[in-house]
Every structure is written in structure tokens, then in C-alpha cells.
């Protein structure tokens, strides 16, 4: 496997009228080509902001810390995303090496331009195809993602397609430039389960075929279990647990991950009581000191939880959690 992207110490703050908000706090991960990483967390945990940082797509009031380092390993050598300043420089990354699909496909297409014109436009920006070639490639991609009568759909507008079709068209558009990395931000959340199953199958096939890396953002652990190779769990801007999907779902190491799993209604055990995580996710303006989860944690080991930020500890090989449960053990 070849390394695709390294994210080191990503810290991102937004300056707002109410003060500085830390949206992402010291997040590090890496991804190989052909690997699918699930990024899980509740709303407000910083999943989308983290993913957008890889293309520096965040709003203009965002500032990255000096320690932040994002290295993209392309065929022509590594690119440090933080060094890219102008939007012309960013073209290599945005829509070039990295494509993104969003949650709401209706909002992602321009309503007054046909699907086809939008697909052709981006191909002409990122490749040296002429419009005829771009048209052929686009129709072929639409066909590839299971849109029947692709040549006809090519001429239609987003509102003429159903939700599932729109999301397929979005995927076709994102993949037509042959990106190295695809960021999928809640791509199935707005879809019905039967359509969600179709889209998940499609994405699995496409990873095999194109061999790209995918960062799959979702709050649905079931979707993660079915799609991802590895998982990173986020809470209030911090990664709390990372590991192979089987390890994390079968032996969750962080109390937050355990809480998420206990709160999830599962079909194979209808008698299982649903255990909510007590309290609410704190406002990012009032991030608790120490471990960010300490205000809701039921497995606190002592004062250290609200005093010191826990470091990542290896629970097993390739499975790490940031929790004082594990640092305490090694002190003794």
C-alpha cells in the first residue's frame, strides 16, 4: 500500500463575534491509497471541518495553527496543503487530487445549469480534455454509477432527478476527474434505507475499481461497519479513538465510543435497553479542560480527567484511544 495523505497536528480555530472557537484540536491521522476511513461523531464534533481542511475549504474566518501539517503524496511528489496560498495553487488539490461529495445533493448542484454542463465544466478545468471528450467521459461515468439512459440524464437539471439519482450523479461528477482521495460527507444521510444500500454498494465497487482513498464522514456506525476499513471517532474537535473497524466496533476502547454503541438501537437484540450518554455535547465556546468528554463520561478515573488532556495509548496494535483509563494503568 502507498501512503496517500498524512495529517499531523491539525488545529483549526474560527474567530467569531463570541470569541475564538476551537473546531479541530490537534488531530492526526493518515490514509493509504485504496483505504476507506470512517470519520464518526455527533453533530458539532468537527468531522466536516476536519475533512474540509484537507482542501483548505473552510470559511475565511478560519485560522490553522503553525504546527498543522497536511501532506498529500501525489505522483509528482508530496504536496504540503498548508503551503498552498492562492486559489490557483489550490487547483491541484481541490477537485484535482481530492473530490468531495456532500450530504444534500440538491444543494450541491447549480439549479439552473444542466448536470452535464456542470460535469463538463469541471473536467475542462482539471484536465486537458476538449468538450467532446469531456462529454463522452461524463456520460460514461453517469452510466457507470448506474444511471439508466445516461445520455438523456446528461441534459437534465438537478431538480428533474430523484434524491438517489442526484447522489449518484454527484458521485459520478466527483469521480470523473479520477481523484486520489474522495471525501464523502454524510453521502447517504438524506436517502432512504433502500437507496442508501444501493449507494453504499456502488461506493464499495468504485473503491475497488479506482483504488482511491475515501474519507467517509457519517454519524451512522452501521454504515461505517459496512464500508470502512478503519475508523476515527471524534468528539468536540478531538480524535478520541482510532483503529481498524472490527476492533473499534467489537471492542470499543474509549468511553465515548462505548456510549455511542450502547445508545444505538440494534435489530438483533430488541430487548436491549437503550442507554443514552448523559448530558449534552458542550458548546465549543466552553470546551471543558482536560479530556473533552469528561463532563459526560461515566468511567472517569479521577481528577486527572478534568485536568490533563489524555494522550493516545495503544490498546492493541493498530487500535488507539485517548483516555486516562489507559494512561493510569501504565503509571502504576
Amino acid at each position: 500500500m502507498t501512503r496517500l495523505i498524512d495529517v499531523e497536528n491539525l488545529t483549526l480555530r474560527f474567530s467569531t463575534d463570541e470569541g475564538m472557537i476551537t473546531a479541530v484540536d490537534n488531530v492526526s491521522f493518515s490514509l493509504e491509497a485504496g483505504e476507506v476511513m470512517g470519520l464518526v461523531g455527533e453533530s458539532g464534533s468537527g468531522k466536516s471541518v476536519t475533512a474540509k481542511s484537507l482542501m483548505k475549504l473552510n470559511a475565511s474566518n478560519a485560522s490553522y495553527s503553525d504546527e498543522t501539517k497536511i501532506t498529500l503524496h501525489l505522483d509528482d511528489g508530496p504536496v504540503n496543503v498548508m503551503d498552498l496560498k492562492t486559489s490557483k495553487d489550490m487547483k491541484v488539490v481541490r477537485g484535482g487530487a481530492i473530490s468531495m461529495i456532500f450530504q444534500e445533493p440538491m444543494a450541491s448542484f447549480a439549479p439552473a445549469i444542466t448536470i452535464g454542463d456542470q460535469m463538463v465544466e469541471q473536467l475542462q478545468i482539471h484536465t486537458d480534455m476538449n468538450s467532446k471528450q469531456a462529454r463522452e467521459v461524463s456520460i460514461e461515468m453517469l452510466d457507470r454509477v448506474g444511471i439508466s439512459d445516461a445520455a438523456q440524464r446528461f441534459k437534465q437539471y438537478a431538480f428533474e432527478l430523484s434524491g438517489g439519482m442526484r447522489q449518484r450523479a454527484m458521485i459520478a461528477m466527483a469521480l470523473s476527474t479520477k481523484p486520489k482521495l474522495l471525501i464523502a460527507d454524510e453521502p447517504t444521510t438524506a436517502l432512504d434505507v433502500t437507496i442508501q444500500a444501493q449507494v453504499i454498494d456502488l461506493m464499495k465497487d468504485l473503491v475497488k475499481e479506482f483504488g482511491m482513498g475515501i474519507i467517509f464522514i457519517t454519524h451512522d456506525l452501521g454504515v461505517i461497519a459496512q464500508t470502512a476499513d478503519k475508523v476515527a471517532v471524534m468528539y468536540l474537535g478531538r480524535l478520541v479513538e482510532q483503529g481498524a473497524v472490527r476492533d473499534v466496533i467489537r471492542n470499543p476502547a474509549h468511553p465515548y465510543t462505548r456510549g455511542l454503541l450502547a445508545a444505538l438501537p440494534q435489530l438483533d437484540d430488541l430487548e436491549k435497553p437503550l442507554v443514552p450518554i448523559p448530558g449534552d455535547i458542550p458548546s465549543p465556546l466552553e470546551r471543558p479542560p482536560g479530556c473533552v468528554f469528561n463532563t459526560r463520561c461515566e468511567e472517569k478515573v479521577g481528577d486527572i480527567c478534568s485536568a490533563k488532556v489524555p494522550d493516545f495509548t495503544n490498546v492493541t496494535e493498530n487500535h488507539r484511544a485517548a483516555c486516562h483509563i489507559y494512561t493510569q494503568g501504565s503509571d502504576k
Binding site: 433502500t194 444500500a197 444501493q198
Partner: peptide
């Protein structure tokens, strides 16, 4: 169609085509 929490249990059952 509900995604199973078990990564080794891909839904082998019938999938619906179309919408």
C-alpha cells in the same frame, strides 16, 4: 437494507432496485 453493525456480515439478503 439496514446496515449491520457487524463488518463481517454484509447484507446478503435481497437488495431493492430502483426507487
Amino acid at each position: 437494507a439496514i446496515p449491520s453493525l457487524d463488518p463481517d456480515d454484509p447484507n446478503k439478503a435481497q437488495k431493492l432496485e430502483g426507487e
